[in-house]
Structure formats: structure tokens, C-alpha cells
Simulated assay, not measured.
Amino acid sequence: MTTFPTERAVRTTPEGLLWEPGARWVRGRRGEVTVVDSRRPVLVWEPDVPVPLYAFPREDVREDLLRPAKNPATGTHTGSRIFYDLEVGGEVEENAAWTFPAPDLAGHIAFEWFGRVGRGPDHWYEEEEEIFIHPRDPHKRVDALASSRRVRVEIDGTLVADTVRPVLLFETSLPTRFYIPREDIRVDLLFPTGHHTGCPYKGTAEYWSWRDGAAVPPNIAWSYPDPLAAVGPIRGFLAFYNEAVDITVDGEIQARPVTPFSRALSERT
């Protein structure tokens, strides 16, 4: 009989890295060239970095495309001293790959993700699904649930949204986000900014800013016009940063949470 672990199979290295074997078939491409093709990826979490990355057995990597880095980016990854430049089609991506010093990860090569830092393979796939920005954390959930709670949003004392048909998005380690139908929002008080961000769990977001008041951070609201299937119910709805607006749920004012976004929002005002 096959048995499975009931707890996270995470290992710790002396350098403070966390890692565990992955079960997904992962490929990374630069343009049309496959740089890595592995059914034995390893997920690695670096200290104080909230998202994981992948490291791969050397035999699953096109090492003929790697060159010893001309300007090694020492200090950018935990304990790493060996970096590689990636050369594909005559174009060189500096410090696109590296090795970790941990004995547990000997024989593995990690890669940057172009969508996150602007270098490295620019297309990544888990099985046949393209993924973006960084690997999905297998210990993180993102659930989008339709609700009948009454949600009101105020910005600088002005009522901007009032709905009884929100979609609540629950994402591990982040506050609940309240996605609201546009029909229930004073969209005339907002304007699109052209700003976009990517999320491996939700897709590509577009943003809106507040028309009145310099004290309100720009890009205060966002929407996913074409979300990934797992969070399909948020399609086209708008959400606001709980950290910078006043949200009331069923008559109860919500405290403004402190999150990794709080500092960036305060610096925008």
C-alpha cells in the first residue's frame, strides 16, 4: 500500500534555505529554445523571500547555453557564489542562473524568471499550463467565493462602492480582498492608469487611480479582465487596497491591515 506524508516534506539547510522535491513537469524557454526540461524540479524558499523558485538537476538543463558569469551577482541569492550567463541566439542574459552552496542542492541549477526580474527564461510551463512571475507555492491557497455580504468602500470620506454581491478572495497570508461588480462602483471617480501587474495565481491585473485628492495612493484599485480559471468569479470586478481605503462589511468597519504592500502604498502618496 502506498503511503503519503501528512506534513510538509520541507528540508532546511545550514544557510537557511527551505526546499522540497516537486512533482510537476516543468519547462523553461527563452524564446523558442527550451533551456530546462525537468520532471524532478526542487522548490526552494530563500530567507525573507515570500515566494519560491525552482532548482533543477544539471542533467535536465541545457548547460551548453550557460557561460560562467562575466560579472557574478554575488550576494543576490543566499550564499551563492557560482553564477552563469545564459546565451540564446547570440543574446546574453547576465546572471540568469546560479547554484546554491547547500550540499542538499548540489548538482542543481536555479534560474531567474524574466517576468519577475527581467532576465532568464521568459516562458515557463508546469505540465501544459504556462505560469508567470514565479512558481506557485504548493502550500498556498487562493479561493474566490461569491458572497451576499454587504460591502461598502469609502475613499477620503466619499462612498465609492456599495454592493451585496461581492466575490471574496481568500489568499494565504494576505487579507481578504473584496471584488465588487462595476455596476456597484462609482467608476466616474476613478480613471484607468495603464499600469499592469502579473500574478501566478490570478493572471494579469489592470489598475485605476482616484480622481480627487493627492493623499490617496495611485493605482488604488485593480481588476483582472481575463483571470485564470481557478479564480474565474472575479472576472471584471474591481478590488481596492484594504491598506489604504475604508471598507465596511455587514456594518462593521474593517481595520486597515499591515501587509507587504503597506510600505509601497505609503511611499506613493
Rank of each mutant, 00 (worst) to 15 (best):
Pro233Asp: 15
Val49Phe: 03
Ser262Ala: 04
Glu63Trp: 00
Tyr179His: 12
Leu145His: 11
Val92Pro: 07
Ile180Met: 11
Tyr54Gly: 09
Arg11Ile: 07
Glu20Ile: 10
Leu174Cys: 01
Cys199Glu: 08
Leu169Arg: 02
Phe170Arg: 00
Leu190Thr: 04
Val142Phe: 05
Tyr84Trp: 11
Arg268Ile: 08
Leu145Lys: 12
Phe170Gly: 03
Ile253Glu: 14
Leu66His: 07
Asn219Leu: 04
Ala264Trp: 12
Arg165Ala: 15
Pro192Asp: 11
Asp156Lys: 01
Gly198Trp: 04
Leu228Cys: 04
Val10Ala: 04
Gly28Val: 02
Arg150Thr: 11
Asp60Glu: 12
Leu53Lys: 12
Pro57Phe: 12
Asn219Ile: 04
Val44Ser: 08
Ser266Pro: 07
Ile220Lys: 05
Thr78His: 01
Gly79Leu: 08
Ala110His: 01
Val92Leu: 15
Val88Ile: 12
Asp188Cys: 06
Phe240Arg: 02
Pro166Asn: 05
Ser223Trp: 07
Tyr179Met: 11
Val92Asp: 10
Ile109Gln: 02
Glu126Met: 09
Asp188Asn: 10
Val51Asn: 10
Pro103His: 09
Ala9Val: 13
Pro257Asn: 01
Trp210Phe: 14
Leu174His: 10
Ile234Asn: 05
Pro217Arg: 05
Glu32Arg: 14
Pro192His: 03
Ser266Val: 07
Arg27Cys: 10
Glu127Met: 09
Leu66Met: 05
Arg150Trp: 05
Arg186His: 00
Trp208Met: 02
Pro227Asn: 12
Thr3Val: 00
Ile234Arg: 07
Leu228Met: 15
Pro121Asn: 00
Arg235Pro: 00
Val10Phe: 02
Ala97Pro: 04
Thr12Asn: 13
Ala146Lys: 14
Arg211Trp: 07
Val142Asp: 10
Tyr207Arg: 09
His108Asn: 11
Ser148His: 11
Glu59Cys: 07
Asp212Met: 09
Asp37Pro: 03
Phe178Tyr: 14
Ile155Ala: 00
Pro5Gly: 09
Pro21Gly: 00
Phe4Thr: 13
Val164Leu: 00
Leu53Asp: 11
Asn71Gly: 03
Arg29Val: 04
Asp104Asn: 03
Gly232His: 03
Pro257Gly: 05
Ile109Tyr: 02
Phe237Leu: 15
Ser148Pro: 05
Gly16Thr: 05
Thr2Ala: 13
Glu59Pro: 06
Ile253Asn: 05
Arg177Leu: 12
Gly213Met: 10
Pro227Ile: 10
Val61Asp: 08
Asp162His: 09
Val153Lys: 03
Glu93Ala: 14
Phe114Trp: 14
Thr34Val: 15
Phe56Trp: 08
Asp156Phe: 03
Val26Asp: 00
Arg116Leu: 15
Glu127Ser: 13
Gly251Lys: 13
